[in-house]
Simulated assay, not measured.
Amino acid sequence: MPIKIPNDLPAFEKLQQEGVRLIGENEALRQDIRPMQIALLNLMPEKPKTETQLARLLGATPLQVELTLLTTSTYRPNTVPLSHLQAFYKTWDEVRDRKFDGLIVTGAPVEMLPFEEVKYWRELTEILDWSRTNVHTSFHICWGAQAALYHFHGVPKHILPTKRFGVYTHYVIERRDAQRPPLMRGFDDYFLVPVSRHTEVRAADLPKDAGLEILAVSNAAGLCLLHEPEHRTVYMFNHLEYDTYTLHDEYCRDKATRADVSLPVNYYPDDDPDKPPRNCWRAYAHLLFGNWINEMYQTTPYELERIGTVAQPQAA
């Protein structure tokens, strides 16, 4: 089934060229099904790129998805034209009375700041609290995951000596005599993930009684994926959603401003930036988001207004 996004959104044409099934308003109304309502709070500076990356993954599942793009009400980013925000985004104030099956909160280029010094921190904490009653399941990425862990559980972030940057091997945490969690179904024991961070969250800082499950880690890059089943919340500290050239673009951007920029680890063939990188994580990105949406579909109430009013079962 397709994903519903505005026809004139910049991501529309690119995804259409890739063969992602897209749906217009009239066709959506003719289909006698309830689409999964997913909100994307996009805090990234290059918003069209992030819209494309995540819409590509959400549109690859068997379910119809209706995507609502969100921005903050109290802070207007200056890295995207106001016309783009006005045409395609809603502020949180405009949707705070609605219910959603899913919420995705992206990373943001503010990870070196203390959380409380981020200009929209107060509003973000209100959105996070709102998500506990108005959203069935949440998926937080990179700084968005650090921010949510800090707000809900007081987990600190730690500044790294150098930027952790590249494609790192991760492994699934196996539990003897236990089934794999739904989010990890179909994953190889080891898999590759793009990483781009100046900070980290450490396993030793996770509260023992918070119900946080570690799903995937890396010996070199640390924590990757956590799940909080009680609140159906996913914390992903890295970037499976990245395109093939996203790390390359970051490397070129950093190199243009500083001389001490290291090559991304395990990214370019033979560590030669003149050779095109190879995408070795795409399948896992589709698998993770597909698992997330499948679990959402199995456990969310059919009537959106019931979200947050009754406890919902976990997916089998």
Rank of each mutant, 00 (worst) to 15 (best):
C280Q: 09
M36V: 15
R76H: 06
L82P: 00
R164T: 04
L54Y: 12
V135P: 07
V217E: 10
A285M: 04
P181T: 12
K119Y: 10
F237C: 13
M112C: 02
Q146F: 09
R232K: 13
F88W: 07
N7Q: 15
T50D: 03
H153L: 11
D272I: 12
V193E: 01
V167I: 15
M296Q: 14
A216Q: 07
D188H: 10
L223H: 06
R258A: 14
R185W: 09
V193K: 00
T233C: 14
T71R: 06
S218L: 11
L43T: 00
D189A: 04
H153Q: 03
Q64P: 11
D254A: 05
D8F: 03
L206M: 08
P109G: 00
P77Q: 00
D101V: 05
V118W: 03
A39K: 01
T72Y: 12
E174I: 14
N294C: 12
I127E: 01
P48I: 01
S218H: 10
L247W: 01
I23M: 15
Y284D: 14
W143D: 07
T74V: 13
V310P: 06
R180K: 14
P301N: 07
A216V: 08
E295K: 11
N266A: 14
V105M: 03
L82R: 00
C252Y: 11
L247E: 06
T299N: 01
L240Q: 11
P48A: 05
H136I: 06
D177T: 06
R175Q: 10
D249Y: 13
P156N: 03
D8I: 04
N279Y: 08
T52A: 14
D272M: 13
K4T: 15
V95S: 08
E174T: 13
I3W: 12
A28I: 04
L225G: 07
K275T: 12
R180M: 01
A147H: 05
H170G: 01
P273C: 12
D260L: 02
L54D: 04
Q16E: 08
Q86H: 10
L225M: 06
Q298K: 13
P277Y: 15
R34V: 15
A259I: 06
R202C: 02
T61N: 08
E111Y: 08
H84Y: 09
E230Y: 08
F237V: 06
E123N: 05
T199I: 14
P276Y: 13
P6T: 08
E230A: 10
A55M: 00
L304D: 14
L29S: 02
D260E: 01
R76I: 02
E123M: 03
S131R: 04
C252V: 15
L43Y: 01
W121K: 10
R30W: 06
L57W: 03
N42W: 00
D260V: 05
K47N: 07
D189T: 09
D243Y: 09
H151Q: 13
E200N: 14
V80Y: 01
R185Y: 03
R56H: 09
L22N: 11
H140D: 05
E230T: 10
F165L: 07
V135Q: 04
E18L: 10
W281Y: 06
T61F: 05
Y267P: 00
T74H: 02
V265Q: 14
